[in-house]
């Protein structure tokens, strides 16, 4: 019983971070019909920025977010303006075209990082790394708690931004009906740029949160991307709450499966469930 509770708790803590990794991916997919396969590669860039700020200037990764979030937001806007928008203007099938384009971009980012900073695996070592809190016999590493807290706070901020602010509502409007949104006076291009900014800013926070608890290297982007894909497929395209539930679900499944089957098999289990899920509810948990 102790082991089950322990696995459940660590599953939830990591699951929240998976949710954050997927939520921005889901947002750009929903709002612009572009599948940004480089989403996780951008998260890895943020992880490296946090790593080097810590190594070179002893800046704590949490403090580094003050720099990383606006940096990633601007990168998102630039990414939309220079790559996604021109591609959208030249094709009728943006889902496919964007997937090819960003697949190439992800490879370029991965190799670029490996070239500049070597393919060595990196670990973020802070004062709290390796320390844990123990509550009622359940051990919770501080890094996991911080990562989870970051993820939850970011997802909540994103949720309230989309639900409560005028620009946030415009993002949802563009996602639900582009023509209707344009006729309301919404500047589609500006709103789409903001969406990419938000998506990559959230990817940046996710990258830092992941880096707090896992080692990473340039090729890590691919396994992180898998989590993002799983979140979107379980949670439904464009749904913030769906992403949160999906991330927690994935975390719990991975956590609990570790008790029953060898760890190496847990991804296999996840993909088996994914295929079953696609047959049962192809539009995600919360979509009707």
């Amino acid at each position: 019983m102790y082991q089950v509770t322990q696995s459940l708790v660590s599953g939830i803590l990591t699951g929240g971070i998976f949710a954050l990794l997927g939520v921005g991916f889901s947002l750009t997919w929903g709002v612009t019909r572009a599948i940004n396969v480089a989403h996780a590669a951008f998260a890895v860039i943020a992880a490296y920025v946090a790593y080097w700020l810590l190594q070179m200037f002893h800046v704590d990764p949490l403090l580094a977010l003050v720099l990383i979030v606006p940096l990633m937001f601007s990168l998102g806007v630039a990414f939309h303006r220079t790559l996604i928008k021109p591609t959208g203007e030249r094709t009728h099938d943006l889902e496919l075209a964007s997937m090819m384009l960003t697949f190439g971009l992800a490879a370029a980012i991965e190799n670029g990082i490996a070239y500049v900073w070597s393919p060595d695996p990196r670990v973020i070592n802070t004062v709290y790394t390796g320390k844990a809190l123990s509550i009622a016999g359940i051990s919770m590493p501080i890094a996991h708690i911080l990562g989870f807290g970051l993820a939850l706070a970011t997802i909540a901020a994103l949720y309230f931004y989309l639900e409560r602010t005028f620009t946030g509502k415009a993002v949802r409007a563009v996602w639900q009906n582009r023509v209707g949104a344009a006729l309301c006076g919404i500047d589609l291009e500006r709103v789409t740029s903001i969406t990419y900014g938000l998506a990559l800013a959230s990817a940046g926070v996710a990258g830092v949160a992941m880096a707090l608890i896992y080692t990473f290297d340039p090729a890590t982007q691919f396994s992180w991307l898998i989590y993002a894909f799983l979140v979107v497929i379980f949670g439904g395209v464009g749904s913030v709450l769906g992403s949160l539930l999906a991330g927690l679900f994935i975390g719990i499944v991975l956590g609990l499966s570790g008790l029953l089957i060898p760890f190496a098999w847990s991804n296999l289990l996840l993909f088996a469930m994914l295929i079953a899920f696609l047959f049962w509810r192809p539009t995600g948990l919360l979509r009707r």
């Binding site: 509502k169 949802r172 639900q176 009906n177 949104a181 309301c184």
Partner: peptide, 19 residues
């Protein structure tokens, strides 16, 4: 009509006054 189906009546109307 090109409305926003998953948003409320109020939100749809408010978005009409987006500018």
């Amino acid at each position: 009509r090109q409305l926003f189906p998953s948003m409320t009546v109020r939100e749809n109307l408010e978005l009409g006054a987006y500018l």
